[in-house]
C-alpha cells in the first residue's frame, strides 16, 4: 500500500488530495500507467508527463524511479516558490 498525493492542478483534476493505492508497480512510470487506466480524470491528469514532477518519499526524482520500499509518492506541476 502506497500513499499517493496530488498537489495544485493535479489535485484539482483528480479531485482528491491523497489516497492509498494497492499496487504491484515496480516504478513510478508503472504506477502512472495503472492510475491512467482507472478513470478519465486520471488519464487527463497524467496525459503529459513533461508537465509533471514526482517526489518519492518526499525527494524529487524521475518517473523511472523504483517503488521498492516506498511509502509515499507525490505528483505535482513544476514548483513555483519564492
Amino acid at each position: 500500500m502506497i500513499d499517493v498525493l496530488y498537489f495544485a492542478w493535479v489535485r484539482e483534476r483528480i479531485g482528491l488530495p491523497r489516497e492509498q493505492v494497492e499496487t504491484e508497480a515496480g516504478t513510478v512510470a508503472a504506477l502512472v500507467d495503472e492510475l491512467r487506466g482507472r478513470e478519465e480524470r486520471y488519464a487527463l491528469a497524467f496525459s503529459d508527463l513533461s508537465a509533471l514532477r514526482v517526489a518519492v518519499d518526499q525527494d524529487l526524482t524521475d518517473f523511472d524511479a523504483s517503488l521498492e520500499g516506498v511509502r509515499e509518492v507525490a505528483f505535482f506541476p513544476p514548483m513555483t516558490g519564492g
Binding site: P77, M79, T80, G81
Partner: peptide, 12 residues
Amino acid sequence: MDYLKSRAPFWK
C-alpha cells in the same frame, strides 16, 4: 532564491 523558486514544493 534560485533554488527556492523551482525546487521547494510550493504552488501559487
